[in-house]
């Protein structure tokens, strides 16, 4: 257009509008190095300790030794699963926080975990299925169903208390499905036993063929999530201003829900409901890099993956020769982190 308002020449000696994102880049660098270390640790540590040098050798040139088999058939699949699940949960948690503007919102609060759990329990008790593939499909379907229900109840409206409605709808669905799950598992001890191990969140028994389902689903969710960062920045200014700036809140919300369902549903289906990752990751990243959802969105899969892998490694080491499930350790680590954040925030607002 040639009739733009005539530009005012700005004073170029002033500091730039957006200072160079040193903090974000440093955080990215730190997370990448942490992730590399953690991946190596995840491959070396466990009931059978190996030096990292040995691990790298075996990764480059697998042989027929027992160490090689442990790495290639047990620890590598488990590490890759941890990376995928953690990245997915980090991204999903960031989306949920940006969408609800509720500091306590995580995948559990939107009823996604309870939808997956309910579907798994129904599958176990009605059809007696304990096949990993079917469980995956049931959990994915259950999360999707729940996400759609919560979205219809609370997410699609455009009103002023839209954020509250979203969270309330999630809590309502979550609690009622949790009750149904409780009733079924209470009266069927066989179902309860199989359900129990899934429900604490575990990475140790990825079923064969899992990655061919998991990778495309999480990949699609991640691409959607990463493309939404700028629009979520506009949405953070309120729906009216977002619309005036050309972002479409309804469309952004629908896409976010789609991405959350894909990411969270598949992560929960693969490893059980792992809490706290989706809650802690976006909070911690906001403290580190500020309010720009684009940076937080890019960093969240790194931070999520690192947190899940660290939890998994600790779970393997704390109770040797046994193991603590990753979901339990995440909660153990997540609680002090969350408390630290709360103390930090209350100091800041004072």
């Amino acid at each position: 257009m040639n009739d733009r308002p005539s530009p005012v020449i700005a004073d170029t000696t002033a500091s730039p509008a957006i200072s160079f994102p040193w903090r974000a880049l440093l955080t990215a660098l730190a997370l990448c190095s942490l992730l590399l270390i953690v991946i190596l640790a995840s491959l070396s540590l466990g009931a059978r300790d190996m030096s990292s040098h040995h691990v790298v050798d075996l990764l480059m040139a697998p042989d027929s030794s027992a160490d090689s088999v442990v790495i290639w058939q047990m620890r590598l699949p488990r590490t890759v699963l941890g990376l995928l699940v953690g990245a997915a949960l980090g991204l999903a948690g960031t989306l949920i926080q940006a969408l609800t503007r509720n500091p306590l919102a995580d995948p559990g609060l939107l009823g996604i975990n309870s939808g997956a759990a309910f579907a798994v329990v129904v599958g176990l008790s009605l059809f007696g299925i304990d096949d990993a593939g079917v469980r995956l499909a049931a959990a994915l379907g259950g999360s999707a169903f729940c996400a759609v229900l919560v979205y219809i109840l609370g997410g699609s409206s455009n009103g002023k208390n839209q954020h509250t409605r979203l969270v309330l709808a999630g809590v309502a669905i979550s609690v009622s499905l949790g009750a149904c799950t409780g009733i079924i598992t209470l009266f069927d001890s066989a179902v309860f036993d199989s359900y129990r191990f899934w429900a604490v969140g575990a990475l140790n028994s990825p079923p064969p063929g899992l990655y061919s389902v998991l990778l495309p689903v999480i990949g699609l969710g991640a691409v959607i999530a990463l493309s939404l960062g700028g629009k979520l920045n506009a949405l953070a200014l309120g729906d009216d201003l977002a619309l005036a700036l050309g972002a479409q809140p309804v469309q952004v919300r629908a896409l976010s829900f789609l991405a959350i369902t894909l990411l969270c549903g598949s992560a929960t289906a693969a490893a059980g409901p792992i809490g706290f990752v989706g809650l802690v990751v976006p909070h911690a990243l906001r403290l580190l890099v500020g309010q720009d959802w684009r940076w937080i969105m890019w960093l969240s899969p790194l931070a999520g993956a690192a947190l899940v892998l660290v939890s998994d490694i600790l779970g393997r080491l704390i109770v040797l020769p046994g193991e603590l499930e990753v979901g339990i350790v995440c909660a153990l680590i997540g609680t002090p982190v969350l408390l630290g954040l709360i103390i930090h925030f209350s100091r800041r607002s004072r």
């Binding site: 500091s15 730039p16 509008a17 957006i18 200072s19 002023k160 920045n233 506009a234 953070a236 200014l237 309120g238 729906d239 009216d240 201003l241 005036a244 700036l245 906001r286 500020g290 309010q291 720009d292």
Partner: peptide, 19 residues
């Protein structure tokens, strides 16, 4: 510029205006 505009907590002026 609507009445309902809200600034994200902790955001700086330069970053807000750049949105």
């Amino acid at each position: 510029l609507p009445q309902s505009a809200q600034a994200p907590e902790g955001i700086r002026v330069g970053e807000l205006v750049s949105r």
